[in-house]
C-alpha cells in the first residue's frame, strides 16, 4: 500500500512559498521515495529549484516514514536548521504534512498533491483499489471495487457508456463493470450482479472519521 502523490508545478510551489525567503525541505523514505516524488534525489533537485527562485535552503532531510511518530525525532535532530527557516516544504504525502504540523510550529507547505491510496500492480504502476468508503461491497463484486474503479461509482451494474470493455471517459481504461461481470461469470456467480444494491450510506461513519481501539 502506498500513498500516491504528484509534485505540484514549480509556479504553485513558488506561490506557496512566497511569504518566506528561507526554507527547510523534508522528504520521505517510504511512499514518496517509491513514487519518486519526495525521495533523496527529488529533494536535492528541489533544493536547486528553490535556489533558482532566490530562496535560501537552510537544510533538508529525508525522514524514513514521515507519517509515523518517529518524525518527532528527525525534527529534533534538525531543530537548528529548521529554526533558521521561515517554513518547511514537505515532499511527503498529506499524511506526512499532517504529522509535521503536529510537531512543528513553523508553517508546513506541501510540495506534492496527494492523489490516492494505491497498490503497486506492476513495478511503477499504482492503482487505487479502495476509497475507504465505510460500506464494503467487494463480496458481491468479485473483489473489484465499483466505488473507485467505476468512474461514476455505480453499484448496480454498468452505465450505457461502457464500450467493448472500456470506460466512456477513456478508451484506454477498463470499465469496472466489464471486469466485475467477467470475474463473476468465471466464478459462476452472476447472480450477485442481479442483486439490487440500495443507495449507499455516505455517513456510515460521518466525517470527521475517528476510531479508538477499546
Amino acid at each position: 500500500m502506498k500513498s500516491i502523490t504528484r509534485q505540484k508545478s514549480l509556479e504553485q510551489i513558488e506561490r506557496g512559498l512566497s511569504d518566506w525567503a528561507r526554507v527547510f525541505i523534508v522528504g520521505c523514505g517510504t511512499c514518496t521515495t517509491a513514487t519518486m516524488t519526495g525521495g533523496l534525489e527529488q529533494v536535492l533537485e528541489m533544493k536547486e529549484q528553490l535556489e533558482k527562485m532566490d530562496k535560501w535552503v537552510s537544510g533538508w532531510t529525508v525522514i524514513p516514514v514521515a507519517c509515523d511518530e518517529m518524525t518527532a525525532v528527525s525534527i529534533e535532530e534538525h531543530g537548528r536548521a529548521i529554526a533558521d527557516a521561515g517554513c518547511v516544504l514537505a515532499m511527503t504525502c498529506a499524511l506526512g504534512v499532517h504529522r509535521l504540523n503536529q510537531y512543528l510550529e513553523r508553517p508546513v507547505v506541501p510540495a506534492l498533491d496527494t492523489l490516492f491510496i494505491g497498490v503497486e500492480e506492476t513495478p511503477g504502476c499504482f492503482r487505487e483499489v479502495c476509497g475507504q468508503c465505510g460500506e464494503c461491497v467487494l463480496g458481491e463484486t468479485a473483489g473489484i471495487c465499483p466505488v473507485v474503479t467505476c468512474h461514476k461509482g455505480l453499484v448496480n451494474g454498468p452505465c450505457g457508456g461502457t464500450n467493448r470493455g472500456k470506460c466512456e471517459v477513456d478508451k484506454e481504461r477498463d470499465c469496472a463493470w466489464s471486469l466485475i461481470y467477467a470475474r463473476l461469470k468465471a466464478q459462476g456467480r452472476l447472480q450477485a450482479m442481479r442483486n439490487y444494491q440500495p443507495p449507499r450510506n455516505h455517513h456510515r461513519m460521518p466525517r470527521p472519521r475517528v476510531t479508538r481501539l477499546v
Binding site: N156, G157, P158, G160, W177, S178, Y181, L190, M193
Partner: peptide, 8 residues
C-alpha cells in the same frame, strides 16, 4: 458485451 446490459 450485451449480457451486463441485459442484467441491468
Amino acid at each position: 458485451p450485451l449480457e451486463p446490459q441485459l442484467i441491468k
